[in-house]
Amino acid sequence: MLRLATALTLISTAASAQVATLSGTDGQNALGTVPCAALSGEPMSSCPAELRKKEDGTATLAVQLNTGEVRRIYFTNGVPDSSSSTSKLTYETPGDLMVIFIEPGEVYEIPKAALNN
């Protein structure tokens, strides 16, 4: 149920996306929250996020961390391939969820449906 709610928070209409914006984003795309942790050992929390998709199959997920930093994760055809961090990025896809890890301890959970729509 929580995953479905998260997917729905990321799949919003353009009209509602223009109401608010996340620092460092354009405010024109899907706004919502994603579960994230910024530091190793930190519990997951709900982080404001904006998903920007392009017609060429690329997308950018901007996430406001509780440290005040905005982390950008870049996707090509639904697969995370880099981020605004210079640290190593890996991911797993258990079920309908994508879990992204950025060393040393950042973790993000994104519904695959949000990337495929």
Rank of each mutant, 00 (worst) to 15 (best):
M1L: 14
M1I: 09
M1K: 13
L2Q: 13
R3H: 12
R3Y: 09
L4D: 15
A5C: 10
A5R: 14
A7V: 13
L8Y: 11
L8C: 12
L8F: 11
T9G: 05
I11Q: 12
I11C: 06
S12F: 02
S12P: 00
S12A: 14
S12Y: 00
A14N: 12
S16L: 13
S16N: 09
A17T: 07
A17S: 15
Q18S: 14
Q18D: 06
V19F: 11
V19M: 12
T21E: 12
L22Q: 02
L22D: 03
S23I: 08
S23Q: 10
G24Y: 04
T25R: 09
D26S: 11
D26M: 05
G27V: 04
N29V: 05
A30D: 14
A30Y: 08
A30S: 15
G32N: 08
G32T: 11
P35T: 03
C36R: 01
L39W: 07
S40K: 15
G41K: 03
E42F: 00
P43H: 06
P43E: 09
M44C: 04
S45V: 11
S45M: 10
S46V: 06
S46A: 11
C47N: 01
C47R: 04
C47E: 10
P48L: 10
A49G: 00
L51V: 04
K53M: 09
K54Q: 14
K54S: 15
E55A: 15
E55K: 14
D56P: 07
G57H: 08
T58C: 08
A59H: 03
T60M: 13
L61S: 06
A62E: 03
V63Q: 01
V63R: 02
Q64F: 06
L65M: 13
L65S: 07
N66T: 10
N66D: 13
T67A: 02
G68R: 01
G68M: 03
G68L: 07
E69T: 12
E69G: 01
V70C: 04
V70W: 00
V70T: 15
R71V: 10
R71Q: 14
R72M: 07
I73A: 05
I73R: 01
F75N: 06
F75C: 06
T76S: 15
G78R: 09
G78H: 09
D81E: 14
S82Y: 06
S82V: 02
S83H: 05
S84E: 07
L89Y: 01
T90R: 10
T90K: 12
Y91K: 00
Y91F: 14
Y91I: 02
E92V: 08
T93W: 10
T93L: 13
G95D: 13
D96R: 09
D96F: 04
D96K: 10
D96M: 11
L97Y: 05
L97M: 12
M98D: 00
M98N: 04
M98Y: 01
M98K: 05
V99R: 14
V99F: 05
V99C: 01
F101L: 07
F101D: 10
I102K: 00
I102F: 04
E103Q: 14
E103S: 13
G105M: 08
E106N: 07
E106G: 09
E106P: 00
E106T: 11
Y108G: 05
Y108T: 11
Y108R: 00
Y108E: 10
I110Q: 02
I110W: 02
I110Y: 06
K112N: 12
A113W: 08
A113D: 13
A114M: 02
A114Y: 04
A114V: 09
L115D: 11
N116L: 15
